[in-house]
Computed example of a mutant assay.
Amino acid sequence: MEEREIMAFKDESGNKIECEVVARLQVDQKNYMILSPVEGGDEDAFAFRVDEEDGNVVYNFVEDEEEFERVQKKYKEYLEEE
């Protein structure tokens, strides 16, 4: 059985949300992670860009619509390969 990779974040209200990493992708030479909440529907998924700032890894929520569409397209291709 494959071990699940779980990450915890806080939402805007300060509530802890645990998410599972469901995919790691590279789009336009940038790294992304697709996360799905552990508690909740499989329909919910969030895209985060993995950046490095001052030598530290930083996860930035993808808010730009065009960037999100490119990541979404790559994720759909990834799912078709599975």
Results as ranks from 00 to 15, higher is better:
G40T: 04
A47N: 09
V71P: 00
D54Y: 11
S36R: 15
Y75A: 00
V62R: 01
M1T: 12
E80G: 03
K73L: 09
V57I: 14
V50M: 14
D44K: 11
A45S: 12
K10P: 00
D11K: 10
E77I: 02
S36A: 07
R70L: 07
R4L: 07
N56A: 12
L25V: 04
V27A: 05
I34K: 03
Q26S: 15
Y59W: 14
I17N: 09
F48A: 02
R24Q: 12
V62G: 03
V22W: 01
F9P: 01
Q26W: 03
K10L: 07
I34A: 14
D54G: 05
A47T: 08
N60E: 06
D51C: 14
F68Y: 09
V62D: 02
N60G: 03
Q29A: 15
V58I: 13
K73H: 07
E69L: 08
V57R: 09
V58F: 09
K30F: 00
D64P: 04
N15I: 09
N31I: 03
G14R: 07
L35P: 01
N56S: 11
E5L: 06
M33I: 15
K10Q: 08
E12T: 11
I17Q: 13
K30G: 00
V50W: 05
Q72E: 08
D28A: 13
L35A: 03
E77V: 04
N56G: 05
C19V: 10
E66W: 02
Y59C: 04
A45I: 12
E67S: 02
E82D: 03
K30C: 02
V38Q: 06
N31W: 06
R4N: 04
G40K: 04
A47M: 14
F61K: 00
V62T: 11
P37Q: 10
E20H: 10
A47L: 10
S36Y: 00
E65V: 10
E63F: 06
L79R: 06
Y32D: 01
E67V: 01
E66I: 05
Y75R: 00
F46E: 09
Q29S: 15
K30P: 00
E66Q: 09
E3P: 07
M1H: 11
S36G: 01
Y78I: 00
M7V: 14
E53L: 15
Y78N: 01
E65C: 06
I34Q: 02
E65D: 12
A8T: 10
E69W: 09
I34P: 01
R49E: 15
M1W: 11
S36V: 01
M1V: 13
F61P: 00
M33T: 14
D28C: 06
D44S: 12
E81S: 04
V22K: 11
F9N: 01
V38L: 10
V71T: 03
F46H: 13
Q29M: 13
E53D: 15
D54L: 12
E18T: 08
E43S: 12
V71L: 03
C19M: 13
N56P: 02
M33K: 15
F68M: 06
G40Q: 05
E2Y: 13
D42V: 10
E80D: 05
L25E: 02
E77N: 04
R24M: 08
V38I: 13
